[in-house]
Nucleic acid binder design. Sequence first.
DNA 1: TAAAGTACTTTATAATATAAAGCATCATGG
DNA 2: CCATGATGCTTTATATTATAAAGTACTTTA
Lengths: 95, 95
Amino acid sequence: MEMNNIPEMFQSKLRLMIISALIRQPLSFSALRQLTGATDGNLSVQISKLSEAGYITVRKEFAGKKPLTTCELTPLGRYSFRQYVELLNSILQGE
Amino acid sequence: MEMNNIPEMFQSKLRLMIISALIRQPLSFSALRQLTGATDGNLSVQISKLSEAGYITVRKEFAGKKPLTTCELTPLGRYSFRQYVELLNSILQGE
DNA sequence: TAAAGTACTTTATAATATAAAGCATCATGG
DNA sequence: CCATGATGCTTTATATTATAAAGTACTTTA
């Protein structure tokens, strides 16, 4: 089957969790850390990868004097996730 | 003498060091930390006080993805420091 | 002079990023 | 088939700053 078509970006549990969380609404770094339970370093790296892949946008600003990082799913990210789920569905159906 | 006129802002060794360092040119938080040897917390607090007093300006931006804080002496800060030195001089001369 | 009030300093913790080191997995060549 | 690498994720340590809490010192004041 199309196992080879599984996009790079979905081959990591953490990235998958991040994308899943962002399906509903944009979230801050802290919120993602709490939802995923990931370490800061790992989360930071995987966010960068998703961003470089164009799956999410990362906005940085200062909330008062402290940095605030907000992540949001892009249309491409959303679309790719849908494709991925469809692929899994089709695999499940034998096709 | 005018001992009572010693401005609040010059009654802390750390603030004095910060202002002295900024006389020549603007400096980053890190540079100030290195020059003064102060702890992060203390430096941060004293920078805020100098800023609130209008003696320095504090600019925040992202250098790449990391925060960068730059401090610069204001005309008021420079003027006040001059006044302070003059005051000390006059005290030294018996007023 | 003991108790209070002020202000500075240290320490701990929070928000993120990067680099280095550790691990696991997968492909290769003997 | 097994030792070697190449990849890539994860953890750990460290870097930038900020804030809150706790410690310390000095100065009033009753």
